[in-house]
């Protein structure tokens, strides 16, 4: 199941793990997901039995109060955290059976992340930040540069490709982060409060762009947001309360 191969995403492939079915978006299926952290005051149960299903190419908004476990759920779906208990299948593949370099390949090839505070490397230009995902995938320099230029054009930042993050506005930085998230043609895009650090106008612009890209490329989109006005734009709305999912 884990033979060495080109780990770049392609239809029907999850990193080093073959995924059957729809080549565009992946299905997310979580059942009785539980997760806890060790804290000085004792065990902190964050997820207490999450059940979740998002169909391939779906658009799901995840809401909930602070500390409800939204970010932890996103981290589990994105392969940033090892599973502790429960079932989590992405494109039919149980992530409990994936670890180490295979999990890194999954993050690199299947998932794209957009963070609230952008997560751009300050030492790199906008284009180099976008290229970074492909750099980690050992893509040839010419190919990754071409792809980065295409993506920067898609998010309307062709003219800013040589700028460093400190020279960009918040909205521009988030658009660079989105371009980076799409660099390896992910089948699942996870956005953790992507508009949290933006003003209202920029927030709407970023979400509209995200939705436009999702429509165009068909990836599954999970959006964590506190903003009710943005959440209602999603086809599927879920809320997390006390570590469990309730329909939004």
């Amino acid at each position: 199941m884990m033979e060495p191969m080109d780990t770049r995403a392609r239809p029907g492939h999850l990193g080093e793990v073959d995924i059957p079915g729809d080549p565009r978006g992946v299905e997310i299926h979580a059942a009785d997901l539980r997760h806890a952290y060790a804290a000085p005051e004792g065990r902190l149960d964050v997820l207490t039995g999450v059940d979740l299903d998002v169909h391939p190419g779906g658009y799901c908004a995840l809401q909930g109060p602070s500390g409800a476990g939204k970010t932890t759920l996103l981290a589990l779906i994105g392969g940033l955290e090892p599973l502790q208990a429960g079932t989590l299948r992405i494109g039919g593949v149980d992530l409990a059976g994936v670890g180490g370099d295979a999990l890194a390949a999954y993050r690199r090839s299947t998932v794209g992340f957009v963070f609230q505070d952008f997560g751009l490397l300050e030492t790199l230009t906008a284009r180099e930040n976008v290229e970074l995902a492909a750099t980690l995938d050992r893509a040839p320099p010419a190919e990754r540069r071409r792809r980065a230029d295409e993506l920067l054009a898609a998010v309307g930042l062709s003219e800013r490709s040589r700028h460093r993050p400190a020279q960009l506005s918040g909205g521009e930085r988030q658009r660079v982060a989105m371009a980076r998230a799409l660099m390896n043609r992910p089948r699942l895009l996870l956005a953790d409060e992507p508009t949290g650090n933006l003003d209202e106008a920029s927030a709407v612009g970023v979400i509209e762009l995200l939705e436009e890209l999702q429509r165009r490329w068909g990836f599954t989109l999970v959006l964590v947001t506190h903003n009710q006005a943005l959440a209602v734009r999603a086809a599927q709305r879920l809320s997390l309360k006390a570590g469990k999912v309730v329909e939004g």
Partner: peptide, 8 residues
Amino acid sequence: VLKAIGAR
């Protein structure tokens, strides 16, 4: 961030 975007 490097790891999140796929660094081993």
